[in-house]
């Protein structure tokens, strides 16, 4: 048996035993060292919408079209038990008034009120990727779910499959579109456009594989929650101060 195996090994072409260049070796190691995640602190969010504005301009999402890769939701829970929620134009221009869903809310009626920024959760089990019939959407080795625009046929299965409603049709390219965690920025060592634009630190990018990353340490040691845990998608956007009313 051993001789047989030895013979098989010697029969392998020499090309199978090639040396990696330094950059190839580094890439192989780094690929295993990065897993991108996100932390949202809903107490810090003030609903200014600068993140949405920055995202749209950075990622060339048509500014006036009612589509966006990230958005901010406002939740107002009244003392009589009613829950009001809205996100006008995805909060591109921020929240500037007391009117929610056509209701003029007064200060003394409010029990709870807060803002919840949303973006792609870059799930560990992304249901949007499973349903793609052509292999146009996929998860990169660092956990980010991307769309191959030249390969997408625009069938829309992934848009239906995402439980978080993160995907939409790009009105210009006519393919599925989604948050990429600003892949062009994070792969250069920058932060995402929304993280940079947030004046209050409500949005944070984390490398979940790095235990010394300060944001990862918050996720690992403080009380955080994820959206729609029951779906089993293992979302990787963590929230501080999530409420049961948030959907």
């Amino acid at each position: 048996m051993t001789t047989l195996r030895g013979a098989a090994a010697s029969a392998l072409p020499l090309a199978a035993f090639r040396f990696l260049t330094r950059s190839e070796a580094r890439a192989a190691v780094e690929g295993a060292k990065v897993r991108w995640g996100f932390l949202v602190d809903t107490y810090k969010c003030v609903g200014c919408g600068f993140c949405v504005k920055a995202c749209k301009l950075e990622n060339e999402v048509p500014y006036d079209a009612p589509v966006t890769r990230t958005w901010v939701e406002r939740y107002v829970i009244l003392k009589d038990g009613r829950m009001l929620a809205d996100t006008p134009l995805g909060a591109r221009d921020g929240f500037t008034g007391m009117e929610v869903q056509g209701v003029q809310v007064r200060k003394r009626e409010i029990a709870k009120a807060f803002f919840v920024p949303k973006l792609c959760n870059q799930c560990e089990n992304p249901p949007c990727v499973q349903v793609c019939p052509v292999g146009a959407t996929y998860q990169a080795p660092d956990g980010v779910v991307l769309i191959d625009r030249s390969w997408c046929i625009g069938c829309g299965y992934c848009i239906m499959a995402c439980p978080y409603g993160v995907r939409f049709f790009h009105p210009v390219y006519r393919v599925a579109e989604k948050c990429t965690f600003c892949y062009h920025r994070i792969s250069k060592g920058m932060k995402t456009a929304c993280v940079d634009a947030c004046p209050f630190g409500a949005r944070q990018l984390a490398n979940l594989k790095d235990p010394n990353d300060p944001v990862t340490r918050v996720i690992l040691t403080q009380r955080v929650a994820v959206l729609k845990d029951e779906y089993g998608t293992k979302p990787q956007a963590y929230y501080i101060g999530l409420d049961e009313n948030v959907r």
Binding site: C45, G47, C48, V76, G97, K112, P199
Partner: peptide, 13 residues
């Protein structure tokens, strides 16, 4: 965007 006063008790706003 920030300076329209909104009296939301659990938000930094």
């Amino acid at each position: 965007r920030c300076h329209a006063y909104l009296p939301y008790p659990t938000s930094q706003r």
